[in-house]
Design a binder for these strands. Sequence first.
DNA 1: GCGACAG
DNA 2: ATCTTGTCGC
Length: 224
Amino acid sequence: MQMKPDNWNLKTDQAIKLQNQLRSRLISSLPEGFELQTLAGVDVSFPGPGVGLCVIVVLSAVTGEVLEIAHHSMKVTFPYIPGLLSFREGPIFVETVTRLKVKPDLYFFDGQGIAHPRGLGLAAHMGLILKKPTIGVAKSHLFGHYEEPGNEKGTWSPLKDDKGGIIGAVVRTRAGKKPVFVSPGHLIDVEHSIEYTLKYTTKFRIPEPTRLAHLWTQKLKKSL
DNA sequence: GCGACAG
DNA sequence: ATCTTGTCGC
């Protein structure tokens, strides 16, 4: 039986089963004739217990100019459990994305893509719902084996699963600073995930789209 | 049983 | 993620 990727009313054991079923639907290559015109960064903050605030910032892939910012806050019930982040942040993201006028060609998420225990991290799961290319750029490690990458910006080392398959990369986006964990979500491969992550990470360690989304998520949290 | 553990 | 100001350093 086919389950919907946006079924949030599940207990933890059922959520895990859903992830195992959805992983097979992932496509690991860009759509035919893919053209990157607009991209988005997503982030979620928690103004208080049981309340989440999501922000999506859309930028021009050419000029880097901010084209649109959408946000929404609502009650969150699912707890934070490593490996089940999409069930906590997914509902509010899906609600927020409906408020966008511009539909981005690519999304950056603050979390893992397929570099996940069941191959379905936040970025991968949201990609299946969006049916758009998604990339996960996490600030810390969750799953996979790797060697520390070189110390220069742009250097990276592969993230591998238990069988040695490459599921992402540990990328040094800033010399001398902690690397980020990049992995493809849906409709994209590891190589392009690294390429786009480096291309859109300019001044800081985190890609501009998600970095800006995070800034807004913190700013809006205070004005509530 | 003992660690590891996105945000 | 969140609790929290100024401060040392590149």
